[in-house]
């Protein structure tokens, strides 16, 4: 464990806590893409298949459980909770995310560390996570003004993978046989997708104005 990865994990956890706060405090999921939440739940379920077979550390196990439970609870809440689901922007959240699923799985079959069930699903979760934010970014562009909690949610979600890139650079230079090309290249793509969001987020923070993504 290094400071970059720990900071990244804490930012990831913060993004989930901010999203939970928004949904439970405002009893509303307006501006949140259910499709992105569904993709994230799949990312964690596909990535943490080794939850019960490989014990890394207490921290690792607890965080995996937190990510799986929180992501599935958010999807369940946006679909089933009578109050919350009324505020879901169904007509705006129209990104065809099944293509992202199919493309990620196809790529995982072609590019993986080992052609085994667990490694293919791990690579699938890495590729899917890189593109999972797309429905959410499209929804933000369509829904015009973005409320603070939603903006903070997306910001921390983007920042966490940027810290993981620093973590991979650090591990590359400090550990002998460290090579995580799949995660690293995918992480670069993932963080690049947030580039324009970060720019408009910075502008809104600098000018102290409402965050607005151009359509």
């Amino acid at each position: 464990m290094n400071i970059f990865r720990f900071a990244g994990d804490m930012m990831h956890l913060t993004s989930i806590l901010v999203l939970l706060l928004k949904i439970y405090a405002t009893k509303s999921c307006s501006g949140i893409s259910l499709k992105t939440q569904e993709l994230y739940a799949l990312v964690f379920l596909a990535r943490y298949l080794d939850l019960f077979t490989d014990f890394i550390s207490v921290y690792n196990t607890i965080m995996k459980l937190v990510f799986i439970v929180s992501s599935t609870a958010i999807v369940w809440c946006m679909k089933r909770d009578r109050v919350v689901r009324r505020s879901y922007d169904k007509q705006l959240d129209t990104f065809r995310h099944y293509f992202l699923l199919a493309a990620s799985f196809a790529l995982a079959l072609l590019v993986n560390e080992k052609f085994t069930f667990q490694e293919i699903f791990w690579a699938f979760s890495i590729y899917l996570e890189a593109v999972a934010i797309l429905p959410q970014l499209v929804l933000l562009q369509r829904s015009g003004n973005v409320d603070n909690l939603t903006g903070q949610y997306v910001f921390f979600l983007g920042a966490y993978r940027a810290f993981y890139i620093l973590n991979w650079i650090y591990r590359y230079f400090t550990e002998t046989h460290f090579s995580r090309w799949i995660a690293c290249i995918s992480g670069l793509v993932q963080t690049a997708l947030y580039a324009d969001f970060f720019y408009y987020y910075y502008i809104s923070w600098k000018n102290n104005t409402k965050l607005k993504l151009p359509a």
Partner: peptide
Amino acid sequence: RSTEDLKDEL
């Protein structure tokens, strides 16, 4: 599974 290919990251 050998230790080095364990996925120790979240």
